[in-house]
Amino acid sequence: MTDAPILEAIALDKVFRVRRKGAPHDIHALKNVETQLHPGETLGLVGESGSGKTTLARILIGIEEPTRGEVRFEGNAVRSAEGWRELRRQVQYVFQDPFTALCPTMRIGAALAEPLAIHGICPKPERKDRVAKMLGLVGLSADMAGRLPYQLSGGQRQRVNLARALMLEPRVLICDEIVSGLDVSVQAQVLALLVDLQGKLDLSLIFISHDLRVVRYLCDRVQVMLLGDTVEHGPTAEVFDDPQHEYTRKLLDAIPDRDHAARISKSALQYG
């Protein structure tokens, strides 16, 4: 990959100060974390619960401030409010939970038009058109615009979330556990959609998931996190086929695997 990174985290530290039994207590959520996302690639972020994936994502879009370190977009450190505003247009974040991400009383059409209004980038009469086009792009019919979130299935809601994030034609999309709660057949539909959109829109993706099967399927590179540290990163095939770190091996061993399970139960039959 010779292209310069589009989005970078440089030496990020994040300390949360909480009170435990009245006394202040520090949680070191990120320790000197570096991340690079290149144009057009998909980077997988994996690691157990609490390892800092969401915190990293939140810092990358500026809704959390790092204790140390900086975020660079297209090579430039993002510092001013103006810089963050521009970044938040180019970098979109799709939430962990498809059921709470949408406002329950706002119709789908209005929810999709909202980012356009906030950034004031599309004249009002044209917004309806843009919304209908976007719904089509994520495989939903235009009449969905009149519906409320509770009238959609889990997979449809996740499509709406993606559509909303794509309204501003961002260059980077950060997806945080967006398929975890979905049935496999719906999950497959959303994954296929992501691959399709990436091709059509020239998107760079950061994909956070605890399902390593999905990460292997989707990602070019993977970064493995443990307790706020990066323990390993590299091309997905290399990391999965020849893990260097003990923790990565442990994670990979824990992936449910029908072939592996069948072998074990056969040998159990033979010897037990």
């Binding site: 057949s185 719906v186 999950q187 539909q189 292997r216």
Partner: peptide, 18 residues
Amino acid sequence: LLRSAPTARSSRRTPLRP
């Protein structure tokens, strides 16, 4: 169902067939 989900061994972007 089996064709819909990537397995521990599926290679990258072998088309899933939802």
